[in-house]
Design a protein around this nucleic acid. Structure first.
Length: 585
RNA sequence: GCGCCCGUAGCUCAGCUGGACAGAGCACCGGCCUUCUAAGCCGGUGGUCGCAGGUUCGAGUCCUGCCGGGCGCGCCA
């Protein structure tokens, strides 16, 4: 609709070009927007104000000339000059109802487009270390990544969702050692628990399954384990201690024994994470293992490629990447003086792998604390010959949990945090998904458990679902009264929908596809929540003001058509948000 | 010190990529269930959009500088 109106404006301006107007007009500068206020009609353009100065005319004068030059169109009831020089468009009523017709015709496809033209996009999100259960912060990233993926799909992108498993780093070794110490302690060992270990309950659970699997075969006396180890904190260094403990564990159990514990711990954690996400309705097409990447030699190949390209240098025994030449604030280490790679090396290699799999665009969803890593990654990719624009990061600000006024503290290592699973069980999946998404991702989120549970306007998910259920209920009542919906009569009687409430709803229905498109392009799912809220509000207002099941069949069917249009769009929107659309509540 | 995010009604936040009088929910006050779900609706109270400059016909929105809050700046992950 916008485009049609812009075309009309372009024609009017072309007509004026010779006479009244002596400036060149770029077609792209002709923009029509939805009017914010119903009094301003349905659409508005500021083109006259933009061109007035260059044309040497007063904005209202120019606007008047443009309106006069507008070609006749069946879309338009009238166009008028308003305010400082706006051109307001009032749609013809047939064009008004076109939106409703389209909703009913397209059904669940209403709101989709092929704007993305099949562009291949990889959305990587959550990617939490498999060293513990997901917490509420991961939940936000999960909800965001899932809905962003849905939005991109709805706008014609070929999306793949991926979870990167950091299963090669030191954190996994720390988890492995933690499990082993718990396993020993469970058999009565006096071995102290490392200060830097993972001390939450799930570690005990894995230790118990280790015992069930291996019996006593992995047991060693505490004295044997502690022999030669440095002091742990607070007397000593907790980092040095845990590293020594891990080395000792390897020595005592042997490579195979150590690997067995590690595999068990990793699989247990991953199984938990997968189940949690699946339970949350968040699916991934691929789970990408860092270890597999490392074993394939890909990281070495990436390093070699950087060397070939002359992007690296050695200094103080370490291998550095010249990221400063590509916009980073300082150069970065790829391989430390002790020969170990930093995380930067496999991360770069991983993103090159994404590119090699044919993804034009890589969208990473990261926690806000990683923002300092963005320039580094992009610079590294550019150094490898990739376009900087192929890599994009959506930063998620933090989540604070409240129970009413009370802030819930969130420690990590000590296990004193609320898990995503606990949150879902307490609040429910639908409320979680929408609560997570109702705020802009670059806004810090206060998640109040009491609010999220309350069945009121506090939580928009109920408001949206309630509107959906009300329509279902009306249709049930219709059947109960022995009546049937007549689609043909409805479509022939849309002119009966002539009140302000109906107009407000139709405006909201028409806005929906624009909202989807904008939310996808700007990576802002929260705007969808707000738009659906406006639609639901318009519907609730109408519901209270008018009766649907009336005697006059033309009016009845027209109203039922509009109600079902609302229901359809709510269902579509809730699906994108990952929430259900119940028929009764 | 440098970098990123935020600062809008008592509280939590929108503000459609500069436009027409600044919006919503909660809270507070007052109304609406013999009719399709009151998890709802209607009305009212409430704001120098952190402060100061600048750009523009027009600034909550863009630029600069302050002030305040969060986060990040390792050969950690």
């Amino acid at each position: 609709m916008k485009i049609e109106l812009e075309e009309l404006l372009a024609q009017a301006l072309a007509k004026l070009a010779g006479a009244a107007l002596n400036v060149e007009v770029d077609r792209r500068s002709i923009v029509v927007e939805r009017a914010r206020d119903a009094q301003h009609g349905d659409y508005a353009s500021n083109i006259a104000m933009r061109l007035a100065k260059a044309a040497g005319l007063r904005p209202r004068e120019l606007a008047g000339a443009i309106v006069a030059a507008l070609p006749a169109s069946p879309l338009l009831a009238r166009a008028e000059v308003a305010g400082a020089g706006f051109i307001n468009f009032h749609l013809a009523s047939a064009a008004q109802f076109e939106a409703l017709r389209r909703v009913l015709e397209m059904g669940e496809r209403y709101g989709t487009s092929n704007a993305g033209r099949g562009r291949r996009v990889l959305v990587e999100f959550v990617s939490a270390n498999p060293t513990g259960p997901l917490h509420v912060g991961h939940g936000r990233q999960a909800a965001y990544g899932a809905t962003l993926s849905n939005l991109l799909r709805a706008t014609g992108h070929a999306v793949q969702r991926e979870y990167y498993i950091n299963d090669a780093g030191r954190q996994v070794d720390i988890l492995t050692a933690s499990v082993w110490v718990r396993y020993l302690q469970a058999a009565g060992s006096t071995l102290p628990f490392p200060q830097n270990g993972y001390r939450a309950d799930y570690v005990n659970a894995i230790a118990a399954s280790l015992r069930a699997l291996r019996g006593t075969t992995l047991e060693f006396p505490a004295a044997a384990v502690l022999a030669g180890l440095p002091a742990d904190a607070p007397a000593g260094d907790k980092e040095a201690y845990i590293d020594a403990l891990i080395a000792k564990m390897r020595a005592l159990l042997g490579a195979a024994g150590y690997a067995a514990v590690l595999e068990l711990a990793l699989e247990a954690m991953l199984a938990d994470i997968r189940a949690d996400l699946a339970g949350f309705g968040v699916e991934f097409e691929s789970w990408f293992s860092e270890r597999a990447l490392a074993r394939s030699g890909a990281v070495e190949r990436t390093l070699a490629r950087l060397h070939e390209l002359g992007q690296t240098y050695e200094q103080d025994g370490a291998l550095w990447l010249r990221t400063t030449t590509h916009g980073d604030s300082e150069d970065r280490v790829l391989v430390r003086a002790n020969g170990a790679q930093t995380y930067f090396a496999p991360d770069l290699s991983y993103h090159m792998d994404k590119r090699s799999r044919g993804f034009e665009l890589m969208i990473d969803v990261w926690g806000a604390d990683h923002h300092g890593y963005i320039d580094r990654m992009r610079a590294g990719l550019v150094a490898l010959g990739q376009p900087g624009a192929s890599f994009e990061v959506c930063l998620m600000q933090f989540v604070s949990l409240y129970r009413g006024e009370q802030k819930i503290p969130m420690g990590k290592r000590d296990g004193q945090f609320v898990t995503l699973r606990q949150l879902r069980e307490e609040v429910g999946n639908d409320a979680c998904r929408v609560f997570y998404l109702m705020r802009s991702h670059d806004q810090h989120l206060d998640f109040d458990l009491e609010l999220a549970k309350s069945r009121s306007n506090d939580n928009p998910v109920y408001y949206l679902q309630y509107a959906h259920a009300r329509v279902a209920s009306v249709m049930k009542q219709l059947a109960a009264r022995g009546l049937a919906y007549d689609a043909a009569e409805a479509l022939a009687s849309l002119a009966r929908l002539d009140g302000p409430h109906e107009a407000a709803i139709i405006t909201a229905l028409r806005a929906y596809p624009d909202t989807i498109a904008l939310a996808a392009v700007n990576r802002t799912p929260h705007t969808l929540v707000h738009q659906l809220r406006e639609l639901a509000q318009a519907f609730h207002t109408w519901y209270n003001a008018a009766q649907f099941i009336v005697d006059d069949s033309a009016t009845r069917n027209a109203r039922l058509a509009l109600a079902q249009g609302v229901q359809q769009v709510l269902r579509n929107g809730l699906a994108l948000l990952g929430a259900g659309a119940p028929d009764s509540m």
